[in-house]
Design a protein around this nucleic acid. Structure first.
Length: 274
DNA sequence: AAAGTAGCCTGGAAGC
DNA sequence: TGCTTCCAGGCTACTT
């Protein structure tokens, strides 16, 4: 499930192979992947040059000239792959972009949760989801991020997953940063000191940077733009470790649903309040 | 305001 | 073996 580091790695890979290339054709194999009238999507995109590939939160964005952007939200199983030649569609191939140099881009998405759009500048800025995104966690300080949730009564994990609080954090990096900061996922932000919250976001930043260095985390479906797996899953300390022993104290990791997500934590090392 | 839940999907794993 | 059930999870919408 791609979160910020995975989308960042995909974006960097695609930027290298796609910037400067021109889209010639669009073949939509699954219409529900395109969250706008399909003919509008196709007609907007065909013939345009890919000027830049970048990322905002978990969105992969391809700029087409000055006033058009393809946005990919990969959700759980989406992949965007750059092929040197044409794409031979498989069962889960949802969209194929043919490029004028004979190469192609494949949007592959087993579970069809992914969402693709082609928006002009105004539409992008007015899109509620985009408009409400919080800051990029690697572009502001941990203090600034902590300041956004000081005193809030919600569970800390829910706040981390809330894209309008901080952009790009998902279940993996939420569990990992909470463990590293020694904070229980059900702790209320208002029960934690500013210092603890700063520590939490500092750990989130550290874990995101580390994951980008390791090419992302591969669990189930994630691969980078070239189809290769990441390596950060080997560095998980808490995520998915329910039933295993905490590396710090030896107590067995517990599991619970928090903010609607499966969560793993050590009830000894992770505190509910300061 | 916060929190719980259903729904969207599919396939791999676990259980019987 | 073969069937059924469970689970994963980003995000929205709706209810409590």
């Amino acid at each position: 499930m791609p979160e910020l580091p995975e989308v960042e790695v995909i974006s960097r890979g695609l930027a290298e192979s796609l910037e400067g290339k021109t889209i010639e054709s669009v073949k939509i194999l699954n219409h529900s992947s395109v969250k706008m009238p399909w003919y509008l999507f196709s007609s907007r995109v065909a013939g345009e040059k890919i000027t830049r590939v970048h990322r905002r939160a978990k969105l992969l964005i391809m700029d087409l000239g000055e006033d058009l952007h393809i946005t990919f939200h990969l959700k759980m199983t989406g992949r965007v792959l750059a092929h040197e030649g044409p794409t031979t569609p498989e069962t889960h191939t949802r969209i194929v972009f043919g490029l004028t140099d004979g190469s192609s881009i494949e949007f592959h998405d087993t579970r069809k949760f992914g969402e693709v759009r082609a928006l002009n500048n105004d539409e992008l800025q007015e899109w509620d989801f985009y408009k409400n995104l919080g800051p990029e966690p690697l572009e502001v300080t941990a203090e600034e991020l902590a300041g956004r949730i000081v005193g809030r009564k919600a569970q800390i994990k829910g706040l981390l997953l809330n894209q309008s609080v901080v952009a790009g954090c998902g279940n993996i990096y939420a569990d990992e940063s909470l463990f590293r900061a020694g904070i229980h996922p059900k702790a209320k932000a208002s029960d934690l000191s500013k210092e603890s919250l700063v520590k939490l976001f500092f750990e989130l930043q550290a874990v995101l940077k580390l994951a980008i260095q390791e090419n992302g985390s591969s669990i189930r479906d994630y691969v980078d733009a070239g189809g290769d797996a990441g390596g950060f899953q080997n560095s998980f300390k808490a995520y998915g470790k329910k039933g295993e022993k905490c590396p710090d104290c030896g107590k067995v990791f517990e599991g619970a649903t928090v903010a609607g997500r499966s969560s793993t934590f050590c009830s000894d090392c992770q505190k509910m309040k300061d």
